[in-house]
Amino acid sequence: MRVQRILRPAALLCALLTLCTTFNGCSSSYQERTAFAMGSVMTARLYAPEDKADDLFDRMTGKVEEADRCLSANDPASEIAAVNAKGSANAGAFTRKTLGDMVLLCHLLNGTVDVTMGAVTQLWGFSTDEPRKPEEADLQAALATVGLDRLLIDNTNETVVLGEGQKIDPGAFGKGVALDEISNVLHTASYPAVVSFGGSVLLYGQPRNGKSWTVGVRDPFGGENDYFAKLSFTPESGDYTGFISTSGSYEKSFTQDGVTYHHILSPETGYPVETDLVSVTVYAPGGLNSDALSTACFINGLNPQTLQWLQSFGAEAVFVNKDKEYYVTDGLSDAFSLTDDAFTPMAYEG
């Protein structure tokens, strides 16, 4: 009798314990870490214990620095810089593989973005302190070097060979590649995390307590910290990975002789692309894809072909035009919520 009296509540407690374990929602908050890489700020919110977060962040920045050492067009010591300087140079496996991915992506996007635009972007100098409008003759000469078919990635001799005067500019892809590398690191540790890298965002894992990740979409007409809408994502699994990238004409621009030039250059004309759009935000399952797609969608504009691209990559997008009108693709409409009433829906029937 006495034994039963003890056993019965004990059994009950064990059952309760198991039940509660399944609802386990540890409410410890995140560790925030910051680093500077690829000419941008990288901020990570890691939902991990402090010591684990330090180790994880070190590994993340290590991967980013490694990628930067291969791909940076600005760092004279990088492999891509050597290729650009000599027209042909040795390139390690990572550089060749990543460059190959970029070229393939450019082909799939009909050359709307082009990784061989380096000579043109160099003339405009948007990544320097003194961007300027190039002379027409110089621009045409630079434009003549652009072309994916003149770039050779030689895996046998482990070299990359460029066409005459051709230069590689991985600018539209770099942060995406870095976020892909970071997501690989996060996969090995499986702590939930939010990483923003110069305006591109990586969401990893499930937020605590069944909440959603929320990402503010920058207000193209406001300041750096202003957003006009929020995207919320509620992951269904612990290894969820989502990438969000934005291309906006407000990012880098300068005014010369009364004309404002923004930094998103058309590979066709060599000039800033003329469009009604002011920003395109892309949500995709891959970092490289989301980064390249946001640029390609901005350049190509909102049309059936652009929407077709998004669909074929399993991506979704938010388009914003000069009149403060927005268009959200179907797959993202549930995630999208407007926070600034000055913006109105765009009259576009996809």
């Binding site: 901020t43 939010v194 965002v201 937020p207 990402v215 503010g216 957003y227 969000i244 990238s245 934005t246």
Partner: peptide, 18 residues
């Protein structure tokens, strides 16, 4: 160099894209 403001603002999104 970075300056940032942290706090418990429930309405603030986890990250910003742009």
């Amino acid at each position: 160099t970075l300056i940032r403001v942290t706090g418990r603002d429930k309405a603030a999104p986890d990250a910003l894209t742009g």
